[in-house]
Design a protein around this nucleic acid. Structure first.
Length: 612
DNA sequence: AGCTGGCACG
């Protein structure tokens, strides 16, 4: 009774006081701890049990799954003398929920070869794993199995099927199930919506979303985050406004996408609003939300606020550490970034490959060749992490900067890496091939595929993809800069004169050029690859998007607020020169975030020390 | 006793 009511203290007193403990008592006390989620006590009781029945073991596996302890669950599973379909189902779902999708599918294969008959519940977990792996073939096999065994009218299974086809970019198959008069619910519709978004079919997604008879918080959140993942950040923020007008309170997951949009748009005002919202509503800053919040502040150049958020997070995940390390490194505080890294290691946290992108970026920034090499070598030796293209890129850059060109070349020679037969490459290849099919001119997918081949040593195929890009005239990304002023994000493209305040911008740019000439500062035309004479070069430099954005910031952001600009490409030498001049002449702090790092301009100097 | 949808750092 005590155990069922959750009063484990009284239950335990009775249990410990009993002279004879029968198997019912053992099972009751165990069930009490499992229900309460007390895995330590549950495991202790479990290990003392004279006879462990299958039901108790099955529930233990499920508990360990929730506690993110798949290794312990596997050990327990392997020690079981008798396993039924629920045991298999529990271990498969455990792997699936702990991002071990491949292991989940392997377990399912073992289950089949053991001759254990499947039921509808285990198929749901197998389909979930197939969806995560974008394993269309496996998914279809499971679908066939479900049809053959006649268990295809189970709601969760239908939803898992729709989700699997959606995740594997097979919209027609998902839609057939959705339209075929099966028993469906809100989850079915949300999975369908998510499928359109994964396929980048934004207009179809929006049409489907608008036509949904019922929308719950997940529907809104799916659409909002779908915009963000397709780089439609203004749409993300706009739909988020509508979501709130409809009185859907955003939860942690929705806010993550909104913050990520704010980070991309340097929309600091909206980002701060979200932070306040989180505090006011007492939302828990989970590791993902914390990471995104840190990243938003870091991407806006607000290092202090980012570190404050980081310090306030109770449960710091590895990604929170990564966000702070990368943020410090890109904001010109490389020494602090490396300090954070050693602090993290002291706490016994294992770095991952993202951590090392930050660590190596810090070394590149500092120009510390020996340290960079040491960290690079420690990846494989100490942490069993295979360096990827980004890590190599960082080290090559670092060596190149130090003038060690021969070493840099050698590194490129021995770069990657045997084609890996399992996991990421195959999955990445499936995903990018499908995206290219859906959207032949999408440059991101081509670049992704090409990088994938390159990173696994399949150079010829990488080159082939690049050639196809040229053939299809996949568009190059134009230079684009954003600046927030008065709560609105303004967008400028290179050479773009369409802004309503263009005359004022022009006036400011001419004034900047005049003041720079007075001080004998020559424009730096080396970064311009246009076939025009030098006078025109100077004019075209005026039109660089970051310069337009900075000039607009000067006239529309009141002092002493810093001007925060984000550029999608790297800042050019001349704009860098101009930014330094502006920061001194006009006494304005400027932060320009480019593809690689943040440039903090103050009093005529840049935090990057003129190397970027 | 086991199961399905939206989420971040490169």
């Amino acid at each position: 009774m005590y155990s069922v009511c959750g009063n484990m203290v009284s239950a335990r007193q009775l249990f410990d006081g009993s002279p004879v403990v029968d198997s019912v008592s053992w099972n009751s006390i165990l069930a009490g701890y499992i229900r309460g989620g007390d895995s330590e006590e549950a495991l202790a009781i479990f290990s003392r049990m004279p006879e462990r029945n299958t039901i108790a073991s099955n529930s233990m596996i499920a508990l360990l799954a929730r506690e993110r302890r798949p290794r312990d669950a596997r050990n327990l599973f392997e020690k079981m003398p008798v396993r039924d379909v629920v045991s298999w189902s529990a271990i498969i779902s455990c792997f699936d929920q702990n991002e071990m999708h491949g292991e989940a599918l392997e377990m399912f294969a073992l289950m089949n070869s053991d001759g254990v008959p499947v039921d509808e519940v285990v198929l749901v977990s197998v389909l979930s794993a197939s969806a995560s792996l974008v394993a269309a073939k496996e998914g279809e096999l499971v679908h066939g199995l479900a049809t053959k065994t006649g268990i295809d009218s189970y709601l969760n299974l239908n939803n898992a099927l729709i989700n699997m086809y959606s995740s594997c970019f097979n919209i027609p198959a998902a839609r057939r199930l959705f339209d075929s008069g099966l028993h469906l619910d809100q989850i079915s519709a949300n999975s369908m919506l998510s499928g359109y978004l994964k396929c980048r079919l934004i207009d179809d997604a929006r049409e489907f979303f608008d036509s949904m008879p019922q929308k719950d918080a997940v529907s809104w959140s799916t659409m909002v985050s779908g915009y963000a993942q397709n780089n439609l950040f203004s749409e993300t923020l706009a739909l988020f406004q509508v979501m709130q007008l409809r009185e859907f309170s955003p939860d942690e997951a929705a806010l993550v996408s909104v913050l990520s949009a704010c980070a991309h748009l340097v929309a600091l005002k909206q980002g701060k609003w979200v932070h306040t919202y989180i505090r006011r509503h007492g939302l828990v800053i989970n590791p993902i939300l914390g990471t995104t919040l840190i990243d938003m502040y870091m991407k806006c150049g607000c290092v202090e606020e980012a570190v404050e958020v980081f310090n306030g997070i109770k449960e710091k995940g590895i990604s929170s550490w990564n966000a702070v390390i990368i943020g410090l490194a890109t904001n010109g505080m490389a020494t602090e970034a490396l300090e954070k890294f050693s602090e993290m290691k002291k706490l016994g946290l294992a770095p991952n490959e993202v951590t090392f992108v930050g660590v190596l970026a810090a070394c590149r920034y500092l120009g510390s060749v020996a340290e960079g090499r040491r960290f690079f070598d420690s990846m494989l030796e100490e942490h069993k992490i295979e360096p990827n293209l980004r890590h190599y890129g960082c080290l090559v850059d670092l060596l190149g900067r130090a003038g060690l060109l021969r070493e840099a070349e050698e590194l490129i020679e021995r770069m990657p890496m045997a084609p890996d037969k399992h996991g990421n490459l195959e999955m990445g290849e499936r995903v990018s091939r499908r995206l290219i099919e859906l959207e032949p001119c999408h440059d991101g997918a081509h670049v992704l595929l090409s990088n994938l081949y390159a990173s696994s040593g399949r150079w010829e195929e990488a080159v082939e993809v690049r050639a196809r890009m040229r053939e299809k005239k996949v568009t190059k990304i134009p230079g684009c800069s954003l600046v927030e002023a008065g709560g609105t994000v303004h967008e400028f493209f290179a050479g773009d004169g369409s802004h309503p305040q263009m005359r004022d911008i022009e006036r400011v740019l001419n004034e900047v050029a005049r003041r720079m000439r007075l001080e004998g500062l020559q424009p730096d035309t080396s970064g311009v690859h246009l076939d025009i004479d030098s006078e025109e070069k100077e004019t075209s430099l005026h039109r660089h998007s970051e310069k337009l954005a900075m000039a607009f910031g000067l006239i529309s952001i009141p002092t002493p607020t810093p001007i925060r600009v984000v550029k999608n490409l790297r800042i050019c030498g001349d704009c860098h020169l101009a930014a330094k001049a502006i920061s001194r002449i006009f006494q304005r702090e400027i932060v320009v975030r480019d593809r690689h790092l943040h440039h903090h301009f103050k009093g005529g100097e840049c935090s990057c020390g003129d190397y970027w």
